[in-house]
Structure formats: structure tokens, C-alpha cells
Amino acid sequence: MINNLVTSEKKIKFFRMGKRNWRKTRWFYLFIAPWIFGFLAFILAPVIVGLLMSFSNFTGGNFNSLKFIGLENYTEVFRDFFSSGDAWLALNRTIVFTLLSVFISTALSLSIASLLTGNIRGRTVFRVLFYLPAMLPLVASIWVFRSLLDNNVGVLNAILDLIVPGIHIPWLTKQAFLSLIIFTAWGSLGGAMIIYMAGIQGIPSELRDAAAVDGANGLQIFRNITMPMISPLIMYQSVLAIIGGLQTLVTPILLTPGAGGSGSMSISTIPVRDNYLFMVHVYQESFNRLRFGYGSALLWIMFVFILILTFFLIRMSKKWVYYEVDPDSKPGDK
């Protein structure tokens, strides 16, 4: 009997607490409700639909003959990977592109950030100039680059022609991959530079002063103080850039469209082979060949690949990223 009374009292207390908590938190839930709704409707639901689509023969309109085909799309993707076809080429080119563009972009943005945090005349102007590409719309930037790099009527070749008459480098065809890397590095420079500059400015000046007093030169200070101190930012920026690189779609198609898209800026065209990236392959299969099921399978494989890669990078970061506190430590650990 006493036990029952105690239990009832606990229940009443719980409900009272619940009500109190609800009063305290209702505004919180009310305010985040639009975001939760947006997340469910526009992110989670499409992701689930995409997953279901990858197990189907969906072609965009075949609702009457839609059927579950199990892992058939996934099997075909792996078969294509091993048959050295377009899927393999696309994966191959994407990995090379991502590694190169991330490396070049990181090296450039870090170098420029270091320079622009020092005492250079007109550094504010340089900061603005270097950040400007990050503010331009992608398609407009591509259009400008095409005008600069066009094989026959490009500005760059016209300038080169003044220096070395008769020289015309086919930037958008035979040097298409280089052009893509340059464009990507140029476009991502500003954003990364700002982050690195913030990181460098946050390093206590005593550390550098002490190193200078001990006789360290600029390079040694950069290598032994600046780099370790901003390594969490390099890690963060690199992970984002790698994910972005693996998901590149529009740039190669519009920048280097090959014969099929000469002149026009159409997403339906196919870029030159060197710039046939993974997402271009996904786009071709999904929207040109209307193989939405196969395209979704490609995307899910890329998703898993990115997930594993990110996990691996985070695990590896313990070896080279300097954290002032142990990231694995728990509150109270000594």
C-alpha cells in the first residue's frame, strides 16, 4: 500500500515536472519548429526517397511499371567500376581532381593568409581582391573564365600572342583539367583565406615573439608555431574542400563543354574527357539517360565513400592536428 502511494506520488511529481519543463522549453520548440519541419520535408524526406529510388527501376515517369529491383543498380555500378567504363573514369578523375584542387587551394590560401596578416602596404585592398571571387555567382565566374581562356578568341591567348606571336594554348580542351583546377582554386581561395587569417590572428603574439627571441626565422616560426596552432582549421577546411571537390558538377560542364556544348551554357552537354567527374556521370545517367535508380545508387555509393573518408580523416587528424585539449578527454579527466 505504502509502495503504491509512493509510486503514485512519483508519477504526479513526474507529470508536474513535465509540465514545468514544457513551460520552460515550449518557446524553444516553437522557434525551432520551422527548421525541424524544413529538415524533415526538404532534407530527410528526399534522402529517404533517394534511397528507395536506388532500389527501383525508376525512370522519372514510369509510375505504372515501377518495381523494386533489390541491389541490381548497385551491382551494375560496381560492374561498371570494374569494367573500366565511364563510371571508373569518372571516379578516377574525381579523386585526382579533388586531391590536386584541395592541395593547391589550401597551399595558396594559407600562403596568402600568412602574407596578408603581416604588415604589408595596401593589405586591405588585397584582402578584398582575393575575397572577391567568393562573392561572384558561379555561372558568371565561369562565363568570365571562358572568355579569358577560349582557345580561339580568349583574352589570355591574345595576350600570349603579343608576347610570343602565333602561340595559342587550348586551355579549355587539351589543358581542360588544368583550367578546371585553376578555376576551382581561384574560386575557393577567398573563403579559405578568411578562415586562415582569423586563425593566424588568433595565435597569441607571445608565442611568435618568444620564438623570435630564441632565434627562429620566419619559416621556422610558420612551421613550428603558426601551422600547429591553426591545424584544426586546416583540418576543418580540408574536410569541407574534399567533400566539395567530390561533389563538383556544374563547373566542368560549363567551363569545358567540348563539342556538344560549344558556345551554349547547357548543363545537358558533356565535358571533355579529362573533366568527366563523378557527379557529371551521375547527371548524365539520371537526367540524360533517365536512369534515376542507377543515378541514386551512384549517389549513395558516393555518400558512403565520403562518410568513410571523413571518418578516416578525423581519426587521422589525431596524428597531425594540434588540440590544446585532448579531444577524447571527458569532463573531470586528469
Binding site: 580542351t173 587539351k174 567540348g258 560549344s262
Partner: peptide, 15 residues
């Protein structure tokens, strides 16, 4: 003619 490695600066009509 124009081709994949020497694409046209525009397309047929304006070219």
C-alpha cells in the same frame, strides 16, 4: 570544322 578539342566559340547561327 569545329570539334571536341577545338569547340566553336558560340554555335552555328552566330558563328
Amino acid at each position: 570544322t569545329f570539334g571536341p578539342l577545338n569547340p566553336s566559340p558560340d554555335w552555328g547561327v552566330p558563328d
